[in-house]
Structures are given as structure tokens and as C-alpha cells.
Amino acid sequence: MQYATNQYEGMIAETTLVPGHNGDLIGAYVARPLGPGPFPAIVVIHHMPGWDEWYREVTRKFAHHGFIAISPNLYHRAGHGIPEDVAAMVRAAGGVPDDQVVGDVAGMLAYVRALPHCSGKVAVFGTCSGARHAYIAAARTPGFAALINCWGGRVTMEQHELTATQPVAPVDYTAGLDCPVLGIFGAEDSSPTPAQVAVLEQALKQHGKTYEFHMYADAGHGFFYYDRPAYRQTQTMDGWKKIWAFLAQHVAA
């Protein structure tokens, strides 16, 4: 949504607790436009560095564009502190279990769909490990209208990378995807590499899924992050345009 300068705009954004995996209450940051709606929604899944300021900003950005946006704290059970300290603790533990993430994201989906101002159409967005989590969640949870995978690493995995908590490569869940997929990648990324993105694309083709992938030249991992040296302004702005167009077509329509 683009607001005209003479148009009313308002937003509410706050943290709350929402039932996730096994009914556990976990933190969630919810931002939504003011008004009766109905608004489409999006689950915004944070990256490895945690439930941090960038994710707060992106959650509000989606709300500014007309979405009820909800960002769960996937590291809630690790304890509380500044985001990077909590993320470091989770990193040491080998990450969060995939099954737990699926449960947490399903909880967010159920929460937003029950809101009276939600249209019922819900996308899921993630970057880095959050994109990997988004992919698994979308493939294992019926009901998502769109999936946005921004440079998700380890969506394809070698056998030796599988662990007890991450026992299945996300790409192997591809048959379960029932929504269109947008992929945003950097040609200089080492995780995922362009070759790994090609493997993922092949899987989507093989299963007859609707997808569009954009591979940006002169861009590495996390090139949207304006607070990191990998930031690429031109590619980032084009990437956001692709995201808005994709959401307009599949979720906001």
C-alpha cells in the first residue's frame, strides 16, 4: 500500500505473548495498521542474530505497507537479555529445533487469522536462518498464502549436516508447499551459494510449485542489512519492490 500525503495513516506496534509450539507462550512483536481492515498478514521470522532491532523495523515496515505483521521470538525459551547475548546462547546450543519452530510459526498463523481485522491471507517472510525456518514452516503448515525466502542458508543440506534437532533438509519438504515462493538471493553469497539456490529451484520445478527467484549480482549474504558492510543499496531497493509486487499479487489482492 502506498499512502497519499493527505491520507490518514496510523499504526500500533507492541510486544505480546502468543501461544507457540506445545502451547508455550512466546514473545511476539505485532505491528498493524490502525483501522478495521480487513488487512492481510505476514509472519516475520528473525535471523540468526536474533529478535533484534532490524526485525522490529521490518515488522513495522510491513505494517506501514498494510499488513498485520507478527514477529515471534524463536529464542524465547533460551532466556532473556540483549538479543545478541540470547542469540549467542542459542548458537552454542546448535540452534532451535525445527519442530519447535514449526509449532511456533503455526501458533503465529493461528493467532493472526483469528484477529477480527485480518483478511485471512497470511504470508511468511524470513532472512538467513529465518528464511530456512520460513521454508520449513510453510511446507509443513497448511494455510500460508505466500512464502518469501531471503537468502535462506542450509535450505539444501548435506547428509552430514543433519542433526537430531534439524533432521530433514528443508528442500525435502518441498512437496508440502501449497503457496507461491519468492526467493531473493545474492550471487556472492556463500550460504546459500548460487549452486545451492539452483538445487532448490530444481526441487520447486520438479514438484510443480509456483515460484520466482531473483539472484542479485554484486551482492552477498544479508545484503538488505543497512547496518552491515554487506549492504547493497540498489539491490536492496529492487528486492523490496519485488517483495511488494509479490505480496500484492498473492496476499493483498
Partner: peptide, 9 residues
């Protein structure tokens, strides 16, 4: 958690 290469001692 992108690489999952982590060890605790």
C-alpha cells in the same frame, strides 16, 4: 545458526 558449526567446552 546459519552454519551450525559450534562446539561448547
Amino acid at each position: 545458526m546459519c552454519t551450525m558449526i559450534a562446539t561448547q567446552i
